[in-house]
Amino acid sequence: MTATLEAPTPSDVNAAVALSGVRKVFGHGAGAVVALDGVDLRVAPGEFVCLLGASGCGKSTLLNLVAGLDAPTSGEIALTTSRPAVMFQEAALMPWLTAARNVELPLRLAGLKRGARRAKASELLSLVRLGEAGGKRPHELSGGMRQRVALARALASTLGSAEAGTPGLMLMDEPFAALDAITRDVLQAELVRVWRETGTAIVFVTHDVREAVRLGQRVVLLSSRPGRVVREWNVDGLTGADESNSIEEITAHLREVISGHAAAS
C-alpha cells in the first residue's frame, strides 16, 4: 500500500515547520547557483519526515535554512517549535568536554542552572543508553557512541528551551552515513525509539532510500539543481512486501530524477 500525496494540505496551525515558496540562490549574476526553488513543505508536530535526493539537491541548504544558520533568498519559513536542533554527519562533539558536558553545553548556553543542567543531561544520556559513559571524553568513545551523544546534545538543545510544552524539532543531515552497517542499523532503531519517547518532530536528510522508508512516516523526494519537491510518499508503518514495493518505486523515481540531469547537460 503506497499512498501518494499529490497535494498535501494540512492546516497551518498543525505544522511544526512550514516552508512556502522557499528559494535560495548562492552568488550573484552569471555565476549564481539556484540551490532551492519554490520549495513547499509542511512537517506536523511529532512527524518523522525523510528528505531524499541525489547530491546537489540542496538537502543540506534546506536544513541550514530551517535551522536559521542561513537565510532564504525569498519565501517564508514558519516555525511553531522551540529552536530546532541540528545533527550533522560527524558527531562534532567538543573534544575538550566529557560526554555529559557536551550534552550540557546547549543548556548552559540557554542559561540553565547547574543542577538542572546536570539532571537533564543525565536523563538524556540514559535515553540514548549512555548513562554510564557521561564522564568519558569523545576520544574514548566509539563512532556510534559519539553519534548517540550528539543525538542527546541535539535533544538537549531543542527540548532544553521547551519546558513550556512547545514541541521539539530535530534536523538531521545524514547523521549515520559515516557509520558501519551494523552500527547504523542499531542507531536507526534507537532513533525511532527515541523519537517515539520524546515526540519531537524530525526532518531527516538521506540519500539512502531503504533508510528513508524504514525510518520515516513520509518520504519527500527532491530534484537536483535546483532543489524542488518532486513527489511525496506516505510510508508510515509499512512492512514486508509493501515496504519493498515502496523502496522499489521510490528508487525508480530517484533514478529518473538523476538520469534527467544527464539528458539536460
Binding site: 543508553r129 568513545l141 566509539s142 557512541m145 525509539r193
Partner: peptide
C-alpha cells in the same frame, strides 16, 4: 525487540570503544 536492540547496542559499544 527493544531489549534485543539494547543488547546488540551494548555489545557494539564494548567492542568498538577505543
Amino acid at each position: 525487540a527493544d531489549r534485543g536492540l539494547a543488547a546488540v547496542g551494548a555489545g557494539l559499544d564494548a567492542l568498538d570503544a577505543p
